[in-house]
């Protein structure tokens, strides 16, 4: 899911960087000062999730967990994901510093999208909560993969074949992330239902 340095064209890098800066600024405004530590802990979870590798066919995919981060943090997931990606680039060499903006948009954009798309379902509780959580995990990966494919094809049309393969390869990951997100949300709801009381979240 991390695009490496030296692949994308300059306009795409610049557009990604600009969008990421705007998203981060909005996200920082949405972080309640009392919950900064929780945001950084979820950022840590995203940071280590990329190290969990799942073999798919001849290649492999890794967990992203942007759906889970998105439904808990909302807009705050943009700075949380951006800083985790920055450290992944610095410490692991995943992605890179010039592609940080594009990678942030690819992973944090869908996180914010699923917060709005499936947040109301999760707030309802019961079966719709489990279904909403599953969809949030799955759709976040689907949207990220579409964005990734779009960015690659936007740079070079020859990436079209790669983009198609990519979509197919990510299907198992979509299902897995859906299940993990559903499991985590259902677990938290059962153990301490008020933890997932999203009712008093005020939409910006």
């Amino acid at each position: 899911m991390h695009i490496s340095e030296g692949i994308l064209s300059l306009p795409i890098l610049a557009a990604g960087g600009t969008l990421a800066i705007i998203g981060t600024a909005i996200g920082l405004k949405h972080i309640d000062t009392d919950h900064i530590i929780e945001t950084s802990l979820l950022s840590s979870a995203f940071f280590v999730a990329s190290l969990a590798h799942i073999p798919v066919g001849p290649g492999s995919v890794h967990l992203v967990l942007n759906g889970l981060v998105g439904i808990i943090l909302g807009w705050a997931s943009v700075p949380a994901i951006a800083i985790a990606l920055f450290l992944q680039a610095l410490l692991f060499g995943f992605g890179g510093l010039t592609v940080l903006g594009v990678n942030t948009v690819i992973m944090a954009g869908p996180a914010v999208a699923v917060y709005y798309l499936f947040g109301p379902m999760i707030r309802k509780g019961g079966r719709s909560r489990a279904l909403g959580a599953f969809c949030a995990g799955m759709v976040a990966i689907l949207l990220s993969t579409c964005l990734l494919a779009l960015v690659l094809v936007g740079t070079d049309r020859s990436f079209l074949a790669t983009a198609r393969l990519l979509l197919a390869a990510q299907v198992p990951l979509m299902l897995l992330e859906g299940v993990i997100t559903m499991f985590v949300v259902s677990f938290l709801a059962r153990v301490q239902p008020e933890l997932l009381n999203f009712a008093d979240r005020v939409h910006p």
């Binding site: 949405h30 309640d32 945001t39 938290l188 008093d200 910006p204």
Partner: peptide
Amino acid sequence: MNRCRFLPLDKLFPT
């Protein structure tokens, strides 16, 4: 402003 109700630290941290 979005006042998110986050998970309490004592539960979130172990998770």
